[in-house]
């Protein structure tokens, strides 16, 4: 794979992560535990959809075949999506959502921080903008994880289950494939081994603060980055793409 193709794949993967997570979040609109949190999460979802648009638009430019953001979002099949498996997992309860966000955003923030200093100036620009958004999300969501972990017996039990259930999807974030390696070497992208060490140290501190136990090291799921998904993604894609697929070529 040449470096241009790797960059294209990398950027479109960033778009997939943002869109799939954003789409999961908007499934929860009008169902958050309190009105104030409803507003916070709409802001977060708007940030993710905005990021997906920027990454897809840039991917379209890199590809040079005239594809635009909506072509990436609505006219690709499930196995062309290369998002992390963690992000496509169904929503569950509020504690599951918060846990998913903290696990991912702790990684994503570091990834964006590194990309913001990468040699591809356009990607660096998008990453710098997204980094500011995610920094706020992560602080907000980490505080929620601590409140739930250190709240009532019930909330502690529930969110400990969330951490235990979702932990198996965290390994994939740090599995470097050819695309990650080329982007690291050719553009100064993140080194995933370094990110893993930082992430482990940070998540340790967060879990201690939240009085939660870190799950034992164990089996890790993977495949999303290569387009092999859990069964959940297909339904999401079918729902999301339905209008574009039913009315091919229509303008909306």
């Amino acid at each position: 794979m040449n470096k241009e193709r790797a960059l294209l794949a990398y950027v479109s993967r960033l778009g997939d992560n943002a869109l799939v997570l954003g789409q999961r979040m908007i499934e929860l609109v009008a169902a958050y535990p309190e009105l104030e949190e409803e507003l916070a999460n709409a802001n977060f979802a708007l940030d993710y959809i905005g990021q997906a648009r920027m990454f897809y638009t840039y991917a379209g430019e890199l590809e040079g075949q005239g594809r635009r953001e909506d072509d990436f979002a609505f006219l690709r099949d499930e196995n062309e999506f290369r998002n992390l498996l963690l992000l496509e997992q169904p929503n569950g309860h509020f504690g599951d959502s918060i846990t998913k966000l903290v696990l991912f955003e702790l990684f994503y923030l570091a990834q964006l921080g590194s990309l913001a200093r990468s040699e591809d100036t356009q990607l660096a620009g998008i990453a710098a903008r997204a980094e500011k958004e995610i920094r706020y999300h992560l602080r907000h969501n980490t505080q929620w994880l601590v409140r739930l972990g250190d709240g009532t017996d019930e909330s502690h039990r529930r969110v400990q289950d969330s951490v235990n259930d979702l932990w198996r999807y965290t390994g994939e974030m740090f599995e470097a494939d050819e695309i990650d390696t080329i982007v690291e070497k050719a553009y100064g992208g993140p080194n995933l081994e370094e990110l893993r060490e930082r992430w482990l140290a940070d998540i340790d501190a967060i879990l201690i603060n939240a009085t939660l136990d870190k799950p034992e090291d164990g089996w890790m799921a993977s495949g999303g980055k290569a387009g092999r998904h859990t069964e959940h993604l297909g339904y999401m894609i079918a729902e999301m793409q339905y209008l574009q697929r039913t009315h091919p070529g229509a303008t909306w």
């Binding site: 609109v29 709409a42 708007l46 959809i49 905005g50």
Partner: peptide, 24 residues
């Protein structure tokens, strides 16, 4: 909200979400 997950473009999706958020 019933159409948020099925909005036909990303721009429409973002606008609709912003509107629903305003309602909250």
């Amino acid at each position: 909200g019933n159409w948020l997950t099925r909005a036909p473009t990303l721009k429409r999706k973002a606008i609709l979400l912003a509107k629903i958020q305003d309602e909250a």
